[in-house]
Computed example of a mutant assay.
Amino acid sequence: MTDPESFEEIGHVLDRDADIEISTHARPHWAQTGTITFITLRLIDSIPKEVITRWDQLRCEFIARILPDPTDDWRADRDRLPDADRKAFDKQFKRLREDTLDSCLGRCPLRDPIAAQIVLDALKFFDGDRYLLGDTIIMPNHVHLLVVFCDANTMRKQCTSWMRYTARRINDQLGRQGHLWQSEPFDHLVRNERQLEYLRDYIKDNPVKANLAQGEFLYRRSDRAF
Rank of each mutant, 00 (worst) to 15 (best):
R75C: 08
L199D: 05
Q92R: 15
F126Q: 15
A76H: 11
D129Q: 14
A122I: 07
D127T: 00
R107D: 15
V147L: 04
D112N: 15
E98A: 05
I66T: 12
A64V: 05
Q182K: 07
D69W: 10
G178Q: 05
T160E: 13
L123K: 00
L123S: 00
T166M: 02
W181Y: 07
M155K: 13
Q117T: 14
L101S: 04
R164I: 01
V190M: 04
R168F: 03
D72K: 10
K87G: 00
K91Q: 14
L146H: 04
L67P: 01
L96F: 11
R111G: 05
S103Q: 15
I66G: 04
L105V: 05
I170V: 11
L105G: 03
V190W: 07
V143E: 02
T154C: 09
R80G: 03
E197D: 13
N141D: 12
D172M: 09
G178T: 04
E61R: 13
D90M: 13
I170K: 02
Q57N: 14
R65I: 00
R95N: 14
V143I: 12
G178W: 01
N141G: 03
D129L: 11
D90P: 04
D69H: 14
R164H: 11
K124Q: 15
Y131A: 10
D83R: 15
K124P: 02
L105E: 06
R65L: 08
V147Y: 01
Q92N: 03
L132R: 13
R75V: 14
D121H: 11
D127G: 08
N141I: 03
R176F: 05
A167N: 09
